[in-house]
């Protein structure tokens, strides 16, 4: 049986792993390759690198980061942030990425999903969706640009559409939960899981070990992503996996 995946996310700015709250007050966490190697030792199943660089001239360093990490760390690598065309994707894949994550660019140009899937295969194209529930209408809406820009796109409909276009995996971040450390948005994943049949990675809200147990037990997700709980050593991946095993969740 396939194991459920635990995926640390590394925000990259100017060749370094950074961590802030809502992309401000960025704190330097360390060197990407060193941190990736540490996560590999802890038993991470996959790594997500998110380019949070604000300026274009620094952006090309992301290829170097991927190149460097993939010489030392041998597990699946997903790269996202600022990828706008097939050429960007090709460069990152050649540098050692296994999957490309599209977010704002997919909203701006949905054909990019199809073009990427056709050229590199569905398994290569992850669509990241940032979702926020409108408190008045209860509608779950898609946000872009690192969660700063609202759209009027319904998240469930968008999930179905991107899968039809060829997305091989969805990385769904609940903005209502992100940064709260109050657990994953179980209801959101149940709803999206019922609507699509590609793997779903849950993101946003991880705070304690039980949160991982709950999301795998109660929602049809294939992986859970977290950043700060792992970066700041509040939890290790080994601790999380040990507890998941005890709870009967199949992990590696």
């Amino acid at each position: 049986m396939l194991a459920k995946r635990i995926i640390p996310c590394l925000d990259i700015d100017d060749n370094r792993v950074k961590k802030g709250v809502n992309f401000v007050n960025l704190e330097d966490v360390g060197d990407p390759a060193e941190i990736a190697a540490e996560y590999e030792r802890q038993g991470a199943d996959e790594l997500v690198f998110l380019d949070i660089t604000a300026t274009n001239q620094k952006r090309s360093t992301m290829t170097d980061v991927v190149e460097n990490v993939s010489r030392q760390v041998f597990m699946p690598l997903t790269v996202g942030g600022g990828i706008r065309n097939l050429n960007d994707m090709q460069k990152l894949l050649k540098a050692g990425a296994d999957k490309i994550s599209l977010n704002s660019a997919a909203v701006a140009d949905p054909d990019l999903i199809q073009a990427g899937a056709k050229k590199f295969g569905n398994q290569c194209i992850v669509v990241a969706i940032d979702v926020k529930k409108d408190q008045k209408t209860g509608q779950k809406l898609v946000y872009t640009h690192g969660g700063k820009k609202a759209t009027n796109i319904n998240a469930i409909e968008w999930a179905k559409k991107v899968v039809a276009l060829g997305a091989g995996e969805l990385l769904i971040t609940s903005m209502n939960k992100d940064g709260t450390k109050s657990g994953f948005d179980i209801e959101l994943y149940q709803e999206i899981g019922a609507a699509v049949d590609v793997p779903i990675i849950a993101s946003g809200g991880a705070g304690k070990i039980e949160d991982f147990v709950h999301v795998f037990k109660e929602a049809p997700v294939d992986g859970a992503l977290a950043a700060s709980v792992f970066h700041f050593g509040e939890l290790t991946i080994a601790q999380v996996k040990k507890q998941l095993k005890l709870a009967g969740v199949n992990v590696r």
């Binding site: 049986m1 396939l2 194991a3 995946r5 199943d45 091989g168 793997p199 590696r252």
Partner: peptide
């Protein structure tokens, strides 16, 4: 069983 099989198997 989702297709492709994507992930770690024993």
């Amino acid at each position: 069983f989702k297709i492709p099989q994507m992930g770690w198997n024993q």
